[in-house]
C-alpha cells in the first residue's frame, strides 16, 4: 500500500474576539490527527485558543487568471465607501 498522508490547512484563533486566521499546513491521516498535529506544530508558543483544520483538497480557490473579471469591477464602485459623500465639516461623527 502506498498512500501518503494528505495535506491539511490549519486556521488558528489567537484569542477570543479575533477571527481564525490561516497559519499554515501539515500532513495527517485523519481529522483528529490533523487537529492534534496542528496543536503541537502551530500553538506550541501559546499562539492559539481555537483551531480549525480542513483537508486542502476541499478548498476551492479563485483563479488568478480571472482576477480581472472577479475583482476589478469592484474598484470603481466608490459610492460604497463613506468618503464618496460630501458633508459639511461642522457635522462631526457621522
Amino acid at each position: 500500500m502506498k498512500k501518503n498522508w494528505p495535506l491539511w490547512e490549519v486556521f488558528v484563533r489567537s484569542k477570543n474576539g479575533l477571527e481564525h486566521r490561516h497559519f499554515g499546513s501539515l500532513h495527517a491521516a485523519d481529522a483528529e490527527m490533523a487537529l492534534e498535529n496542528a496543536r503541537d506544530v502551530y500553538t506550541r508558543r501559546n499562539e492559539g485558543v481555537s483551531i480549525w483544520v480542513v483537508e486542502s483538497k476541499h478548498i476551492t480557490a479563485s483563479n488568478p487568471e480571472n482576477n480581472g473579471e472577479m475583482f476589478e469591477p469592484a474598484q470603481d464602485k466608490i459610492y460604497r465607501h463613506p468618503t464618496f459623500y460630501n458633508l459639511p465639516d461642522e457635522l462631526k461623527h457621522m
Partner: peptide
C-alpha cells in the same frame, strides 16, 4: 506506522 494511520482513517471514513 504511516500506512496503518491511513488504513485506519479509511476504515473510519
Amino acid at each position: 506506522v504511516r500506512d496503518a494511520a491511513m488504513a485506519y482513517a479509511e476504515k473510519q471514513e
